[in-house]
């Protein structure tokens, strides 16, 4: 599993798309928001938590279809399936690799973009915490969606349609944590729920992902 993780990370860095594209998309969406809603600082402060979360979610969505599609095209997937690595392990590794290449950079970049949206100072720790706890779930749920659509040509749009409803609870608790934080309230409950969703996703979704992969390999 470590070999697969190392390979995926190396590929993401070499191909260039993995890191850069998602981050650039995140930045562009955040820059576009004030053009849409106006430059008024108080308005931006109020919508910043939600906008940051939605933008991070969309940026994570962008690279989902690459998770299995590349391995499917060059034939690595059947070779991995016949290797000693269980497919559940492959699924888990793919989810972790996706988080390390998109979720983690997005989390680290979010505070900088928070300045652009005039995010309340009290909200920064909550923004970091909620993204750090929530984006792993986004990656694992997305890996599951990618496994469902791996056999479909141009499945990218369908993938978004399948994955976005599954993202609802994560988004709600994530944005709520930042919102409560920016109002100076305690955000323990949404943060706990967020970690719950993440743990739950990583505990169960690898099995569903592996089942979907097996079906698609038939």
């Amino acid at each position: 599993m470590i070999a697969l993780l190392a390979r995926d990370l190396r590929l993401a860095v070499r191909a260039g798309g993995g890191f850069g594209l998602g981050l650039a998309f995140f930045l562009i969406v955040i820059v576009l928001i004030p053009f849409g809603v106006g430059p008024e600082a108080s308005v931006l402060t109020r919508i910043a938590p939600g906008v940051l979360w939605v933008a991070a979610l969309l940026a994570a969505l962008l690279s989902l279809d690459r998770i299995f599609a590349l391995d499917h095209e060059d034939g690595s997937l059947p070779l991995l399936a016949t290797s000693p690595l269980p497919l559940e392990g492959v699924a888990l590794t793919k989810g972790v690799a996706h988080w390390l290449t998109t979720g983690l950079p997005l989390t680290l970049a979010a505070p900088a973009l928070g300045f652009l949206l005039n995010l309340a100072p009290a909200a920064y720790p909550y923004l970091l915490a909620s993204l750090a706890l929530g984006t792993p779930a986004l990656s694992m749920i997305g890996t599951f969606g990618a496994a469902l659509t791996v056999g479909i040509r141009r499945g990218g749009l369908l993938l978004s349609l399948l994955v976005l409803p599954l993202y609802v609870p994560t988004l709600i608790f994530g944005a709520e944590a930042v919102r409560l934080g920016s109002d100076g309230l305690s955000a323990t409950v949404p943060l706990a729920m967020l970690s719950g969703i993440t743990l739950f996703s990583y505990a169960l979704l690898p099995f569903a992902t592996a089942a979907a992969l097996r079906i698609n390999l038939r």
Binding site: I141, F144, L148, L162, P165, L166, V168, P169, I172, F173, E176, V189, P190, M193, I197, L204, L205, A208, A211, A212, I215, N216
Partner: peptide
Amino acid sequence: DLTSILCIVGSVFAFLSRFAVQFW
């Protein structure tokens, strides 16, 4: 096969969404 898996996983997340929305 694939829609069945989606239905099962979706049910769990639909259930979660219900509580999330109530909280929200």
